[in-house]
């Protein structure tokens, strides 16, 4: 690999009480890459994403972002370092308007470039522009998902974490999201690390991918390589009817 490493996880262990949810995970994401993480229900994908943001915290191992150890950094400092996440369950600010939610997303930048950035996400999601003053909590499920992704984009992150971005979105919009990710990656060099249930789309989109089973990485390779593996296809691609 020639590209500069942006994110490195080494031997990361995360516990919930006495339950070991991540069992020593190693992950590398290089600058400008799209990396996917797939795995079954309960494998620990969301735990991994949240551990990157320091909540829950890794109990053992190291997370290095852009040469800086962020393992024990408070969450808001991790965000300031340039990592943004669209988390599982969306977690939008229900009582704030769509615009205010986006302002919160941009707060890391203290409002710089706000006007330009909001137009950019409105261009991706015209629905959000129509509803700019609607309260976040009254948006439809899919609209909330769009808002969560848009909010993450507002901080101009160097690393964008997406936990199931296609969740609750109509088929047309899912395509749009994947195209947008590819587009941002190509035009702005945005680095993306995403979790997806829609493994087929994810593996096609991603340069590389990891397979997480029971809190441990069992396979890694390029998207195409994994698509070809029979065990991956059996476990994550086929409906099995």
């Amino acid at each position: 690999m020639t590209a500069k490493p942006l994110l490195t996880m080494r031997g990361v262990e995360t516990w919930y009480g006495s339950i070991l949810a991540l069992k020593g995970v190693d992950i590398d994401v290089a600058e400008g890459e799209i990396v996917a993480l797939i795995g079954a229900n309960g494998a620990g994908k969301s735990t991994l994403m949240m551990t990157l943001c320091g909540s829950p915290r890794a109990r053992r191992g190291a997370i290095v972002f852009d040469g800086r150890d962020i393992t024990n950094l408070p969450t808001h400092e991790i965000a300031r370092a340039g990592i943004a996440q669209s988390p599982e369950g969306r977690r939008i600010f229900a009582r704030m308007s769509v615009r205010e939610n986006l302002q919160m997303g941009a707060s890391v930048l203290r409002g710089a470039h706000f006007a330009r950035d909001i137009e950019r996400v409105f261009a991706i999601f015209p629905r959000l522009k129509e509803r700019a003053s609607q309260r976040g909590g009254t948006l439809s499920g899919g609209e909330q998902q769009m808002l969560a992704i848009a909010r993450a984009l507002m901080s101009r992150p160097r690393l964008l974490l997406l936990d199931e971005p296609s969740l609750g979105l109509a088929p047309l919009v899912v395509k749009l999201i994947f195209e947008t990710i590819r587009e941002l990656n190509k035009s702005e060099g945005l680095t993306v690390f995403l979790v997806e249930q829609n493994a087929f789309h994810a593996l096609k989109l991603a340069g590389r991918a990891y397979v997480l089973v029971n809190g441990a990485v069992t396979m890694t390779g390029t998207g195409r390589e994994l698509l070809a593996r029979p065990e991956v296809r059996a476990a994550y691609l086929e409906g099995g009817h």
Partner: peptide, 16 residues
């Protein structure tokens, strides 16, 4: 450079 990253030991004193 996929080797062992330099774990920055600066986190702990920083917190103190």
């Amino acid at each position: 450079m996929a080797g062992n990253p330099q774990v920055n030991p600066q986190g702990y004193p920083h917190a103190i």
